[in-house]
Design a protein around this nucleic acid. Structure first.
Lengths: 243, 243
DNA sequence: TAGTGGTCTAGACCACAAA
DNA sequence: TTGTGGTCTAGACCACTAA
């Protein structure tokens, strides 16, 4: 991998993709020492500022950390990822040390309910795809997840894959070129709705964490609405704050 | 305000403090156009890289945003602050457009319970200060907040102020020089404990958001343990994620 | 066209860790 | 002492916005 000098993509973004995929694909493991800045400079023929700009991004996102005089290291994946980056259930469970699995509860087309239509910025007559799954960690019910998609943007996606195994995100990116750029989410505490409680094997008084998320694609238009119900006794969120 | 060339504090940190306090103290209002980089460069006699480094920090933290060709502007305070920065109840309520108030439920000294001792990294015999407050938004119960402090680090703080009005954080900073640098928190959904439910005027089945937070001072040692119970029907958390 | 922010370079000196 | 990251400078050219 080298820097493409003719591309319109800035060098720092290219280098970012290179280093991040090296980390995410496992070329470098947590705790590993990264090449020093001087080596990255000569390898990729970039100035120190440009290299450091990329490292700053990776540090801010928690992928790497620096120790003055010693070097730069790959960081341990953090639990807080769930509140910083768009990650899927599989990644989330793995970070928590649980073995993920899924069961499909429903896979259908429907016309958009009012609240979801608004979140997705489509008319209420719009056709949506719905994928409803039970998510398990170590074989025990962890959450119920309802994912709504604008059908016009990804026709036929429901039939294409076995979503017990395939990540929706991967499928959408591969088949339709839909890349998720950012998302907004709301986190609430609720008591288990009547239809959700038995799926999670809890009583209808049980407390749940409900997360509603709107994901935006690269064109900054909403692409997905996700509503997830997590068992309060099995799932919590962790994050770090700055002064 | 100018840059102190003899200080050991890096220029970029000095400029950061200057600009951030200008924004936070209200010298610049949301939507205001900031001076262009060229002006900051000549005003503070710094290079463009140093000025931009500071602006990058403020952009990352959501204080300002840039528009190419137009300028740099002060951002609207975001709701998501509650999941990014350490803010107090008063700021949180104001961001939500609610009028904050408080009632003190308990103010006492105690020996550290096991779980809190561990979080604060003190022995179980350590003496802690406890400040327990009912927090209201628009006069309605919003949360119950229990703040535990290591008494040895701030002796007598309970008697010094009227914590119905004074922020604990301000008091600790002014009286003991304790500045909060960062915090870690866990967010859970629970049903209202028997002793909390009546305070929040909910039944004991009601769902609550429980947030437990350990705050670290500048020396990176734990300074405070906070446990807050929020009414699930009145309080939710919002944040944004990146791809 | 003038002014803004976006990207990039090629240096410099410093503080800290490890050998 | 050597090599690392931390801070800082003084330039350059580009893309976009508004006049």
């Amino acid at each position: 991998m080298t820097i493409n000098r003719n591309s319109k993509i800035p060098y720092y973004q290219q280098l970012y993709e290179i280093l991040r995929s090296e980390i995410e694909q496992g070329g470098w493991q947590p705790g590993d020492l990264l090449p020093p800045e001087s080596e990255l400079i000569s390898t990729y023929q970039l100035s120190r500022n440009t290299v450091r700009e990329v490292m700053d991004m990776l540090v801010n996102e928690g992928f790497i950390y620096r120790e003055r005089g010693r070097g730069t290291f790959v960081a341990q994946p953090k639990m807080e990822q769930a509140l910083v980056r768009i990650i899927n259930f599989t990644q989330d469970m793995q970070q928590r040390g649980l073995s993920p699995s899924s069961r499909i509860l429903e896979s259908s087309l429907l016309t958009a309910p009012a609240d979801i239509a608004e979140a997705l910025q489509v008319p209420e007559s719009a056709e949506l795809g719905l994928l409803k799954r039970l998510r398990l960690g170590n074989q025990k019910p962890m959450s119920v997840e309802e994912a709504y998609f604008i059908h016009a943007r990804c026709p036929g996606f429901l039939e294409r894959h076995d979503y017990t195994r395939t990540s929706l995100r991967e499928a959408l990116e591969q088949d339709y070129g839909l890349r998720w750029l950012r998302a907004k989410q709301i986190i609430r505490a609720i008591t288990a709705p009547k239809d959700i409680a038995p799926l999670l094997q809890v009583t209808s008084h049980a407390p749940l964490l409900m997360i509603e998320r709107v994901t935006y694609a690269e064109d900054d238009r909403p692409a997905e609405f996700l509503r997830a119900y997590y068992r309060g006794d099995r799932y919590s969120l962790y994050n770090e704050l700055n002064g």
